[in-house]
Simulated scan of single mutants.
Amino acid sequence: MTSTRTPAVWMPFPAEGFDGLPEGFDYHVWDGEQDYPADPADCAFYVVPYMKAATIVSRPLMDMTRVRVVQTLTAGIDHVEPVLDRLPAGVRLCNAQGVHEASTAELALALILASLRGFPGFVRGQDEEEWKAGFYPALADKSVLIVGYGSIGSAIEDRLAPFECARVARVARSARTTARGPVHPLDDLPALLPEADVVVLSTPLNPSTKGLVDADFLAAMPDGALLVNVARGPVVDTTALLRELESGRLRAALDVTDPEPLPAGHRLWHAPNVLITPHVGGSTSAFLPRAKRLVAGQLSRFAAGEPMQNVVRTTG
Rank of each mutant, 00 (worst) to 15 (best):
D78F: 11
M64L: 08
V199R: 07
P194W: 01
A225T: 06
R176T: 14
S202Y: 07
L139R: 05
E195K: 13
V99M: 01
G153N: 09
A296V: 10
A175D: 03
L262M: 05
F13W: 14
C94M: 08
L61Y: 10
V183K: 07
D63P: 04
A179S: 13
V70E: 04
G32A: 11
R124E: 14
K292L: 12
G17H: 12
F122M: 06
L84G: 09
P259R: 13
D78S: 14
P88H: 12
E164R: 14
S202K: 07
V123N: 02
K292G: 05
V274R: 02
D223N: 12
W131R: 09
N95Q: 06
E23V: 03
D255I: 09
A105V: 12
Q71A: 08
T284K: 12
P204K: 06
R59N: 03
W269L: 07
E130W: 01
S58A: 12
L160A: 07
E260C: 01
P259C: 11
R180M: 07
R159Y: 06
L275D: 04
V147R: 03
A219Y: 05
E101F: 04
G148W: 10
P137D: 11
G125D: 08
S202M: 03
A225I: 05
L242Q: 00
R59D: 02
R66Q: 13
S247F: 01
S283F: 13
L84P: 09
V295W: 06
A108E: 10
F287H: 12
V280K: 10
D141R: 08
A215P: 01
R92S: 14
K210L: 09
N273L: 04
Q97K: 15
L254D: 03
P278G: 09
M62V: 13
S103D: 14
P272T: 04
A105D: 12
T6N: 00
V123P: 00
G24R: 04
Y36N: 10
P49Q: 07
F287S: 05
Q309T: 14
L242N: 02
V48G: 05
L192F: 02
A303L: 03
L212N: 08
P37S: 11
F135K: 04
G125I: 04
D258C: 12
L299Q: 06
E128L: 12
V198G: 02
Y136G: 00
I77G: 04
G134W: 00
T178H: 07
A155C: 10
R170D: 13
L275K: 08
I146R: 05
V213N: 08
F18A: 06
I77V: 15
V147D: 07
P22R: 03
E106H: 14
A169M: 13
E157S: 10
K132W: 05
D216R: 14
H184T: 10
A219C: 03
T2S: 15
S283R: 15
